[in-house]
């Protein structure tokens, strides 16, 4: 592999009190690719993402961004690097419109007055750049949007701030079939635009539909990181449920005998 990963974690350990949640986890994500992060409930997906986003600190390990070691001590550090996380609950204000939500907390101003025109232009340009055609008007209130449209707004918000790495936490979990397709299409487009996308999902159909690589966590360890084209769904299921599949996966699966 000659391409350097934009985001690379090495040997991450993380404990909450006496419980060790992550053991020596390595993870990397590449520009222009969708890396799917899969694993059963409690495998440590959310913890890993929160470590990447700076919400949790980790006990040991290295965080490399664009090949250089960095210190990420909080969400703002991660945002400064260009790491944006779209959480499952989206964190949108229903009573505000799309533009207001996209710029919330980072409004453009002229003197003390909000520069609505500039914000509206930037929001429209970002959505157009993502080829979003499902949103009628950027001045619509978010409460009037469908689940898929909300997800779109949340993703566009992450992209607006020149995010280099966009991490999506279960973006399709609450969506119907058509809207899931829309969102997956958008996820693919983000990567095709050169962004690094990390997709957390339970749905292997979604994972195989859009991802370039799959990282499978098993009981807090990275079972395997493989190219999507190199594996089958049943192999990934085995990685998720037992930590190994043939010659892939953990050599000795901790806890598998228990």
């Amino acid at each position: 592999m000659t391409v350097t990963p934009i985001l690379e974690l090495r040997g991450i350990d993380k404990s909450f009190g006496p419980v060790q949640v992550l053991h020596d986890v390595a993870f990397s994500a590449y520009p222009g690719e969708v890396t799917a992060l899969v694993g059963d409930n409690g495998a440590g997906k959310s913890t890993l993402v929160k470590c990447i986003g700076g919400i949790h600190s980790f006990d040991a390990g290295e965080y490399l961004f664009e090949g250089e070691r960095v210190q990420v001590n909080g969400p703002r550090d991660a945002a400064a690097l260009g790491v944006e996380i779209v959480y499952q609950d989206l964190a949108l204000c229903d009573n505000l419109d799309i533009v207001q939500n996209m710029f919330l907390g980072r409004e453009k101003r002229r003197g003390p007055i909000l520069d609505e025109a500039t914000m509206e232009e930037m929001a429209a340009r970002t959505l157009a750049g993502l080829s979003v055609r499902t949103v009628k008007s950027v001045r619509q209130q978010v409460s009037h949007l469908s689940g898929g449209q909300r997800q779109t707004v949340a993703i566009a918000k992450a992209v607006l701030w020149n995010g280099k790495v966009v991490i999506l936490d279960e973006p399709t979990a609450a969506l119907g079939v058509a809207q899931t397709a829309q969102v997956l299409e958008l996820v693919r487009r983000l990567a095709d635009n050169g962004l690094t996308v990390v997709l957390i999902s339970h749905n292997l159909n979604d994972v195989f539909a859009v991802s370039d690589r799959i990282a499978a966590l098993y009981l807090g360890r990275m079972a395997a990181q493989v190219r999507t084209t190199d594996v089958t769904q049943s192999q990934v299921v085995e990685l998720i449920t037992s930590g190994r599949s043939g010659d892939l996966g953990l050599a000795t699966t901790n806890g598998a005998t228990a």
């Binding site: 959480y87 609950d89 964190a91 204000c93 009573n95 505000l96 207001q100 919330l104």
Partner: peptide
């Protein structure tokens, strides 16, 4: 003013937005 509406609409979203 916008932040007042934001906090009233979804204070968790407002907090995460750095307000």
């Amino acid at each position: 003013g916008l932040h007042i509406y934001a906090v009233g609409g979804n204070h968790e979203a407002a907090r995460r937005a750095g307000i």
